[in-house]
Computed example of a mutant assay.
Amino acid sequence: MSIDQLDRRILAVLQKKGRISNAELSETVNLSASACHRRVQRLESEGYIRDYVALLDARKLGVPTTVFVEITLQTQADEVLDAFEKAVARIPDVLECHLMAGTADYILKVVAENTDDFARIHRQHLTRLPGVAQMQSSFALRTVFKTTALPVG
């Protein structure tokens, strides 16, 4: 099903304030509480709202270092891709893994305490990933902008 502008306003608010009460949400989007609740339930059941999560502070949790790792595989055979994807999903320090079009086959977003911790992650996990031909790591010096909010406008 498609969504209308009111649904989009609800989604925009929920992306920024996931813990907002239904009463506050309905007031913010100018809709009755019961109609707002029904719309949120429909957006959830249709999969527009996938989950509700808490966004944690990486610095306070001791993993302030972000590293982007470009990985090129020896081949792109289905069994190699599947084995790689299953193995990389088991590494707790990897936050994201993207299959790419371009020079790298995959790009990983990895968090670490510092460069020594990343060296440990590299040695214990990344070098053991199946099918890897080449790997290049780039350390983020500073996060200029970061959001989890998708454009729904």
Results as ranks from 00 to 15, higher is better:
Thr28Glu: 15
Pro92Trp: 05
Glu46Gln: 12
Glu96Lys: 15
Gly47Ser: 03
Leu25Val: 12
Leu61Asp: 03
Lys86Glu: 06
Asp78Pro: 10
Ala54Lys: 02
Ile91Ser: 02
Met100Gln: 13
Pro64Gln: 05
Ser34Cys: 02
Leu56Phe: 14
Leu73Tyr: 09
Thr75Asp: 15
Tyr52Lys: 15
Val63Lys: 06
Val63Ile: 14
Thr28Arg: 05
Gln74Glu: 01
Glu79Ser: 05
Arg39Val: 07
Glu85Asn: 04
Cys97Gln: 06
Phe84Tyr: 14
Arg42His: 11
Ile71Pro: 13
Val94His: 03
Phe84Trp: 11
Val67Glu: 03
Arg90Asp: 14
Asp51Glu: 11
Glu44Ala: 13
Val80Cys: 08
Leu81Gln: 08
Glu70Gly: 15
Glu27Met: 09
Ser32Ala: 11
Ser32His: 05
Gly62Ser: 07
Val53Asp: 02
Met100Trp: 03
Met100Ser: 11
Gln76Pro: 01
His37Ile: 03
Tyr52Asn: 12
Lys86Thr: 11
Leu95Phe: 12
Val94Phe: 06
Leu73Glu: 03
Val67Asp: 04
Pro92His: 08
Lys86Gly: 11
Pro64Phe: 06
Asp57Cys: 02
Pro64Cys: 10
Val80Arg: 00
Glu79Leu: 02
Glu27His: 10
Arg38Asp: 00
Glu46Val: 09
Ser26Phe: 10
Val94Arg: 02
Gly62Gln: 03
Arg39His: 03
Cys97Asn: 13
Leu55Tyr: 12
Val67Lys: 02
Asp82Lys: 10
Arg39Cys: 08
Cys36Arg: 00
Ala77Thr: 01
Leu95Met: 14
Val63Phe: 12
Val53Met: 09
Tyr52Val: 15
Cys36Lys: 00
Thr75Leu: 06
Gln76Cys: 05
Arg90Trp: 00
Leu56Val: 12
Thr66Glu: 06
Arg50Pro: 06
Val88Glu: 03
Glu85Trp: 01
Ser34Met: 13
Thr28Gly: 05
Glu70Ile: 13
Ala33Asn: 08
Glu24Ser: 09
Val80Met: 04
Gln41Lys: 15
